[in-house]
Simulated assay, not measured.
Amino acid sequence: MESTAPTDPRFDGPGPDAQYRQALLEGRFVLQHCEDCSAARFPPALVCRNCGSARLAWRASPGAGEVYATTTVRDRAGDYNVAIVELEQGARMMSRIDGIAADAVRMGLQVQAHIVPGDEPFVVFTPIAEGTA
Rank of each mutant, 00 (worst) to 15 (best):
G13E: 04
S38Y: 12
A57K: 13
D12G: 11
F29R: 01
A104Q: 13
A83F: 04
T70K: 12
T71V: 14
T7P: 00
L31Y: 15
A40H: 13
A102D: 04
M93N: 02
T70Y: 09
P121I: 01
R41T: 14
N81C: 12
A39Q: 08
A133V: 08
R59P: 02
S61L: 05
A83H: 03
V116M: 07
V85S: 03
R76P: 09
G78N: 09
E86L: 02
L109M: 12
R76N: 10
A91G: 05
L24D: 07
P9M: 05
D79M: 07
A5D: 00
V73K: 01
L46M: 10
R10G: 02
G27E: 11
Q32R: 02
S95G: 13
E130A: 11
G65W: 05
V105Q: 02
V123E: 06
D98Q: 10
A133G: 15
L109W: 05
A60L: 15
P9D: 07
P127N: 05
M93C: 09
I115S: 01
R76I: 10
M107V: 15
P14R: 02
I84E: 05
R106Y: 01
E26F: 05
E88W: 06
G90E: 06
E130H: 14
G78Q: 04
P16M: 07
H114A: 10
R59E: 15
F122R: 14
P14L: 08
S38A: 10
G108S: 02
G108W: 08
I128M: 15
V67W: 00
G13I: 08
V82T: 07
T70F: 04
I100M: 11
E130W: 03
T71P: 03
P16K: 05
A91C: 12
P62N: 15
T132Y: 10
E88Y: 06
G15N: 10
T70E: 05
V85Q: 02
F11G: 01
P16A: 10
Q110S: 11
